[in-house]
Design a protein around this nucleic acid. Structure first.
Length: 615
DNA sequence: GCTACGAGCGCC
DNA sequence: AAAGGGCGCTCGTAGC
């Protein structure tokens, strides 16, 4: 390997190989008031303070007997043509590629240089169940000693000029940066072959779509901001104690003191669905508005912060660039990222604000929102082998009704269950959505209320769970099977073993170092540090979630193949930007086409052609 | 002063 | 023996 002796950029090139994989890592100025956290990767790069003062590059494979190319130094002296036609990799390519594109835009890098591809080793790492951050990934995947990241912290608030003023600091940065590029390259070199082509494409498209962004109704945004400031202000009127105007009135201590002064008990929890808190509200809520006010303050504030983030990040063309984390969950699902979560916007209007309405198609386009219908419930039936219920669904029965027909004695000749027996329909819905993963009686009461609006007593909840299990032996059997595998795999206390569940979609779910405490525990990450309790129902849910994700992603690629523009998505919902005369039936056909591995499971989808995002 | 973690609340 | 699961963001507090 190459030692880095000084900060002077050093380049070793004998010949340029075509289709070379080269790892790239940028160092850029950041501070307390100017950071990716605040502006997102795109806003950060487009910002006036944007300063990519260092680049490191590494291509470690001496092919054709040529020497390793490595560079760590000023971008001004970087041989950019090396990237032309190359396969570039970065650890968090969402950032580094954006930096590069912005540099080209500003003529800081030649505009004619075009990499053949740009892949992300952070995405590769999480696909392999390793940590997303480079330090953790290198430790888990390369078995190298933990990297020292303290220099990264010291770089905060420091311009390159300031760093050059400190003896040895730039050299330290150069060494650190090159090491990052080397580890990134090593991870790619060692593991890329384990990353399927389709997954690479998902990772790449995910970054492209986020960078492209979604159009925002900026006028409505301003209106919403006003409403939320007002809502928060109104909540403040009912909070009697003093607080730092720079901060929030949410300190539990203040509430406790206020309650004591009033001679009343203080609720142990402030959560809306907490029983004790509900009792407190019934008893004291009319006279003492604090708890409700704190809740309103919190909820309006959370929404306001979301609005402020949007306002800060919307580009001059009205679009909002965002990020979704590829493989954010160990099941493979995407998750929110970079300060704005596209996957958890409120479904309903709150404080006069419907956040979803802010997202609109570009001028002349329409938005097509397409949801899978109960995909997890269908996949559960499919994995468990309940062909009878699946057949009923294929014949056109709603999933909940098919469940009622096959396990609750409903006769579908009587007509649609939803209208003939609304209570039974609701109970069927609660069972399908809530009882399929080993949920117990007390929890089922809560879940049934939340998911199906059914009010059950504890006794009824317990009975419902018992009845569900008796009526659905295949599903119960599936839990048992997964649990047996877990117990079989866990090895011994001294020598824990990994548990691998092969999925029908062709990949595996892995649980690392399964061991026994009071329960069977395992780590979800290679080299993970936080064990989670496992049991059949939970494993079952993980399996179903993973399969649903695979169906979702497979058909997302098919949509892309067919030329449909994805904007963003949320687990089982695609949000597309389409021509007004789009063939909705064609889109539905693509979405409900079964992947090769999924035969015999009827898929369904609901599509909505609209002028804004909505539920 | 920073990190870690739980509470609270939003989603699928 | 029984146990629904998967996330992110904001905030407060504890612990270093």
């Amino acid at each position: 390997m190459h030692a880095v002796r000084g900060y002077n950029p050093r380049t070793v090139v004998l010949e340029r190989l075509s289709f070379m994989t080269i790892a790239i890592d940028f160092e850029t100025y950041y501070s307390d008031t100017y950071s990716i956290d605040l502006f997102g990767p795109d806003g950060y790069c487009a910002h006036p303070q944007f300063d990519p003062y260092h680049i490191s590059a590494y291509d470690g494979k001496p092919e054709n007997g040529s020497p390793v190319f490595s560079y760590t130094g000023l971008p001004q002296s970087f041989p950019w043509e090396r990237l032309n036609g190359a396969d570039v990799v970065s650890h968090n390519a969402r950032f580094d590629e954006t930096v590069f594109l912005e540099m080209q835009k500003r003529n800081w890098a030649p505009k004619n240089v075009k990499p053949r591809s740009w892949q992300c080793t952070a995405d590769l790492s999480v696909y392999l169940d390793a940590p997303r951050n480079l330090k953790g990934a290198a430790l888990a995947l390369l078995d190298v000693p933990p990297m020292d990241k303290t220099i990264r912290d010291r770089m905060k608030n420091k311009t390159p000029e300031m760093m050059r003023g400190k003896t040895g600091m730039m050299e330290e940065v150069a060494g650190y940066a090159l090491k990052d590029a080397m580890y990134c390259w090593e991870i790619w070199d060692k593991y890329a072959s384990q990353w399927p082509e389709t997954e690479r494409r998902v990772s790449q498209l995910n970054r492209d779509w986020g960078r492209r962004g979604v159009m925002v109704d900026t006028k409505l945004l301003a209106e919403y901001r006003g409403k939320l400031l007002e809502a928060r202000f109104n909540a403040e009127k009912d909070i009697p104690w003093e607080w730092d105007p720079e901060k929030t009135p949410l300190a539990p201590k203040s509430l406790a003191i206020e309650c004591r002064n009033a001679g009343i008990p203080c609720p142990g929890s402030l959560a809306v669905d907490d029983e004790e808190c509900m009792a407190w509200e019934n008893e004291y809520g009319d006279k003492y508005k604090w708890v409700g006010a704190m809740r309103d303050w919190r909820r309006s504030n959370i929404l306001l912060k979301k609005i402020e983030t949007l306002r800060r990040r919307v580009r001059t063309d009205g679009t909002f660039p965002f990020s979704l984390k590829y493989w954010g969950a160990h099941t493979g699902r995407f998750s929110g990222d970079a300060g704005f979560n596209m996957q958890n916007m409120p479904r309903n209007e709150v404080f006069g604000v419907d956040v979803r309405r802010l997202f609109i198609p570009r001028p002349g386009k329409k938005m097509l929102i397409a949801d899978f219908s109960q995909i997890e419930a269908r996949l559960l039936l499919w994995v468990a082998g309940d062909t009878k219920t699946l057949d009923a669904i294929r014949r056109g029965l709603h999933v909940y009704e098919a469940h009622a027909v096959n396990t609750m004695g409903y006769d579908s000749k009587r007509g649609p269950l939803k209208t003939t027996d609304p209570d039974l329909y609701k109970l069927a819905k609660a069972r399908v959505l809530g009882a399929g993963y080993g949920c117990g009686g007390p929890k089922f009461v809560v879940v049934a209320k939340k998911m199906a609006g059914v009010e059950l007593s504890l006794e009824q909840g317990v009975a419902a769970v018992k009845q569900y299990r008796a009526d659905n032996p295949r599903i119960v059997n599936l839990w048992a099977k997964l649990n047996a595998g877990l117990l079989w795999s866990r090895g011994t206390e001294e020598k824990p073993q990994d548990y691998e569940i092969e999925l029908q979609s062709g990949r595996s779910l892995k649980f690392y170092r399964v061991h026994t405490g009071t329960d069977a525990c395992a780590y979800l990450e290679r080299g993970g540090t936080r064990p989670v309790k496992l049991f059949g129902g939970k494993l079952c849910e993980n399996v179903i979630q993973a399969l649903a994700r695979d169906v979702f992603v497979t058909n997302m690629l098919k949509l892309d193949d067919a030329g449909y523009q994805n904007m963003f998505h949320a687990h089982d919902e695609y949000v597309l930007e389409v021509e007004p005369d789009v063939d909705v039936k064609e889109v539905e056909r693509i979405i409900t086409t079964n992947p090769d591995w999924l035969s015999g499971c009827p898929l369904g989808a609901e599509l909505m052609l609209t002028d804004c995002y909505k539920k």
